[in-house]
């Protein structure tokens, strides 16, 4: 198949425009963050002298040594719990035949459809009753639960795509359901699993509303995105500081993606089945 020159040019033009839409604001933030602390900036302006001082100050005044620690604790726990449970639920829904399996998978989908804002207030009262607000559990449990909808849906789709014969071969070879999952499907599903983990990491790391409602009153439990918000209200005029703080909060997700993005793309199914 060959594409005409005009078609190629159009495609490239569209791609360039959209890339610019993403890259330019990022660049503006990076350049802004390089201004000296407290500098007055508007739009895109190059600083007279580059300085990393803004980052240092933002880290200290934004309490990031505490907030980042909370974010790590919450995010790691959410990713671990949600990945494990999604894998188990997705496996059952994809490969086992049991009464109500179809219905159950729709129930899981509901979690994807109900907007989070609709449940955060009742959730707050529930958790307060249990004495869980202002603890890490108030962030971990709801996020793990909510991630389960997407995670189960994701893993179910992956397990369904695995050639059935592989599972059957393992079963005839004497493997239990448990062995099939851990020895065959999980190693095979590493691309799907790691993608899921990165997505969950991103959702959880960037979560703002839940943290604001559940733990804003407790300095020790605040997460990094909350720190960002406080930044804005407390140091209203410090645009370079906010930019530097944003970059620091975004950095872990960026680094994770940088290291893992090849994994996303590489499939491991080649050669399983006649190729």
């Amino acid at each position: 198949m060959s594409t005409s020159r005009a078609e190629r040019l159009t495609t490239h033009a569209v791609l360039i425009v959209f890339s610019a839409l993403v890259i330019v604001p990022m660049l503006v933030i990076v350049v802004t963050a390089l201004h000296p602390p407290g500098a007055l900036t508007s739009g895109f302006s190059l600083p007279s002298s580059f300085s990393l001082e803004t980052f240092r100050q933002a880290w200290v005044t934004g309490h990031f040594s505490t907030y980042m620690r909370s974010s790590v604790i919450v995010t790691v726990a959410v990713v671990a719990i949600a990945t494990l449970l999604s894998t188990l639920a997705g496996y059952a829904l994809a490969t086992m035949r049991f009464r109500g399996a179809e219905l159950l998978s729709y129930v899981f989908l509901i979690g994807l459809m109900v907007p989070f804002e609709a449940m955060v207030i009742p959730l707050y009262y529930d958790l307060r009753e249990q004495g869980l607000t202002e603890t890490y559990w108030a962030l971990i449990l709801p996020q793990a639960g909510l991630s389960l909808s997407f995670g189960t849906f994701w893993m179910r789709a992956f397990f369904r795509a695995v050639p059935r014969q592989l599972i059957e071969a393992a079963r005839v070879d004497g493997a239990s359901s448990w062995t099939v999952l851990w020895r065959i499907l999980v190693p095979l599903g590493w691309p799907a699993l790691s993608t899921l983990m990165v997505l969950l990491f991103m959702f959880s790391w960037n979560e703002f509303l839940l943290a604001l409602v559940m733990v804003d009153a407790s300095e020790a439990h605040r997460t990094a995105p909350l720190g960002l918000a406080n930044f804005q209200s407390r140091f209203g005029a410090d645009v370079p500081g906010a930019a530097a703080a944003s970059l620091m909060v975004a950095l872990p997700v960026f680094v994770l993606y940088l290291f893992l993005h090849r994994r996303f793309i590489r499939g491991m199914l080649g050669g399983a089945i006649k190729g």
């Binding site: 014969q165 592989l166 059957e168 071969a169 079963r171 005839v172 070879d173 095979l188 399983a272 006649k274």
Partner: peptide
């Protein structure tokens, strides 16, 4: 299947990739 002590060869081989 695990208890039947039979081995199966599949059309698409079904090797663990």
């Amino acid at each position: 299947p695990a208890r039947r002590d039979v081995a199966m060869v599949f059309q698409d081989y079904a090797l663990y990739p």
